[in-house]
Amino acid sequence: MRGILKRGARSPEEDVVDVDPGAMGSLLEESQDIHHDAMRSTATALDELVETGHEARAHGEIDPDASRDVAARRSALFTGAVFGGGLLAAAGVVGALETLFASPAFAASATDVQILQTAASIEVLAVGTYKTALTLPFIGGASANAVVKAFATTTMQQHQQHLDAFNAAITGLGGKTQSSADPVLQKVVAAAVPGLTSPGPVVALALELEQGAAETYVADTAALSDATAKKLTASIMGVEAQHVSVLLAVQALLNANAPQLITLSTTNVANLPAAAGSVGFPDAFYPTSQARPASEGAVS
């Protein structure tokens, strides 16, 4: 896959990269083919989840209020306590976990629904944010870097697929689908929108959302009770982390005033500075300090 993007003759002031539209189309098409294969296994997992949900509902309706406290406790367990600083140390982590998992099955299921609804609310916001970004001329317009534009477009689509998958999982567990954005993060986005006057702030905002999503799903993977919901979330967390990697690399090149290096080609790597080789994966272990609380985006 060589020479997908090619650099044309340009003045030093110009940052626009000449694109071979046919090659880029082939690249994305190939990516889509691979994606569709992956979707098949995800669909199978969701089918399992639906079956599980049917069984769960046979034992009674889910009570969102009853599970909210459980969700909050679990969220603390899997983010603040375990990963953040051992708040449960005095009480005994093992004992607390055993007590938690001794909760009735319906409460666990309802808590899973809230976790999934929060995940869906993050995806709603991500889709909306990329959609807005793509209306900006320097992200989705003629003056945009081709790779950045392709990334924003493809990533928006991937988040829409994540949203659909989370909502299907929620339905499978007998809950209400989420179509609203995470209320806390939405305020962050709203505050940032007026400042989106160049690629840098857009990338910074996207990075914040993607990092929050990835960390939330890492925490959720340990917090979820339902096996299939866990599988689904685990299949998404790494993808968000990859979005983070791309955005970190793009951000670094923008900050270094080298946007012309944001290209996809086998020869581009030779031009990258040494530090670009590690900027995309700063943590050997993915943190969860920015994970959103499990019930933050739950449907009331």
Partner: peptide
């Protein structure tokens, strides 16, 4: 030189 996030769901 490949698209860095080819899958919406990892397998």
């Amino acid at each position: 030189g490949q698209y860095p996030v080819p899958l919406a769901f990892s397998t």
